[in-house]
Design a protein around this nucleic acid. Structure first.
Lengths: 252, 252
DNA sequence: CGTACCTTTGACGGCTGTCAAAGGAAGTGG
DNA sequence: CCACTTCCTTTGACAGCCGTCAAAGGTACG
């Protein structure tokens, strides 16, 4: 994809080719880009839900803070993702949303989603598909947290993130950008940073991967996949049945 | 609510009062009730996604089986819930869906959702709200699995399930129907049935609750809530902002 | 060059899993 | 109505992964 093509279009377009009308609606959402800084909080828990964001560039996450101070990252938001869909139908936010890196976001009022539902069934379905995949990522992470060892969870997260990134913009697997500290990685996977450190050290010693400050270097792709035991169907773009049905309804 | 009123209407109606048109659309979905038996599998992982179900009566769950034979229950489906929304936009099912008890379900082809999107924005939003709450329940369970002890997770699940049931049909908290074996409870919470047994025994010894074969008896409501540390906002029906916007769009 | 944050390493402890066996409870067929 | 089977629950012994606490070493940044 071209550098300045819309990420969100590249994202949603994977489900099925969107028409002129839909592309126009998406452009509407990205009319007001804002530059945001590293670690900037986009909303806090308890805030009124009134805006959604598309993420044009940069990484973000949503998280929940426990009473005891422990933070749990709920989802990692990558360029092209819509931020806030999950809580669109709530009065107040359950989670906090925060940038990881600096970046560019495009806020839009949440009732624009209503306009989209009225204006375009295919785009509504694409958004539904996007929301479902977000939920599937969450489900998968829950399975991982419950049934897998720390090393396996780390491996899985690396492969998953690579897959998500590569889907919107083709990247190199042997070494790619991953601006996530061990502390945050722990908050994502539900492990302490101490244990993350131990696990990463052992993976490096065994020549599987090296985690640098802001990128991952994969040394042994096969071993990594084996540990990750990754089946990417939960983020696949394939949605045949509905796509055909949309065609029958006169959409392209 | 009346015994023979539609559960799904009672469920979705909580978000905002649905009009004649919407009630009619929901009735459409429930035109073909089927009786299903205890433990009947509704779909298996890998099956083509072509039907959704509303659950008129009985309990069901969706689950994923690990390679090592461990089963993880993804969500508990209660009367009035729509079963399959999460995987609507996938080509094949990621999970298995299975009845817990016997019951009555109403299958309908998944492209009916497209009809609904085209026919009624409020109903689309209500379905979105329902899907979001399902995802929130999942998120909450992930937090619990990662940060809470076995006893606390059990307490939380009991209170959550009571809250969900009470929302669609008022029930008594001191003793209510919960047709879930310790084995399945373990599969829900990501614990072994052995550990569930130990935890339940200790909760019974301390006069918090007694789990019988198919119902829960709450002995000390306050203690239970304290252990559960339950904040129900993630399943609340409040969605003010959008509701008003829908009114502005001419919906009631 | 000082400060703040991130990473590493060690010692220790606890929650929960595994394995195993026995004791109920429910359903089936004779 | 009684064996038989099957599934669920309970209990004990033991082990291991990961958390906690603490301190030191790195790294970025002002």
């Amino acid at each position: 994809m071209l550098r300045n093509e819309s990420c969100i279009l590249a994202n949603l377009n994977q489900f099925f080719p969107l028409g002129e009308n839909e592309q126009q609606l998406l452009k509407e959402l990205e009319k007001t880009p804002h530059r945001v800084t590293e670690k900037q909080v986009l909303w806090a828990a308890g805030d009124k839900v009134d805006q959604l964001y598309t993420l044009k560039s940069g990484w973000a996450y949503t998280c929940r803070d426990n009473l005891d101070g422990a933070r749990q990252v709920v989802d990692i938001v990558l360029p092209g993702d819509v931020l806030g869909l999950r809580e669109l139908t709530f009065a107040t936010h359950l989670s906090q949303a925060q940038m990881i890196t600096e970046g560019v976001i495009c806020p839009f009022p949440n009732h624009k989603i209503i306009d989209i539902i009225e204006a375009s069934t295919p785009l509504t379905v694409a958004l539904l598909a996007s929301l479902s995949r977000q939920e599937s990522i969450l489900t998968e992470r829950m399975l991982m947290s419950i049934h897998r060892s720390a090393r396996s969870r780390i491996a899985h997260f690396i492969v998953e993130t690579y897959t998500r990134l590569n889907r919107v913009r083709s990247i190199d697997f042997d070494s790619f950008y991953l601006p996530i500290s061990q502390k945050v990685l722990g908050e994502i996977l539900g492990l302490t940073s101490v244990h993350i450190s131990r696990s990463l050290t052992s993976m490096e010693r065994e020549r599987v991967l090296i985690k640098h400050r802001d990128h991952i270097q994969v040394l042994d792709r096969e071993k990594l996949y084996e540990e990750a035991d990754f089946d990417g169907s939960y983020i696949s773009d394939n949605m045949n049945g509905l796509r055909e049905r949309l065609k029958q309804h006169g959409f392209r």
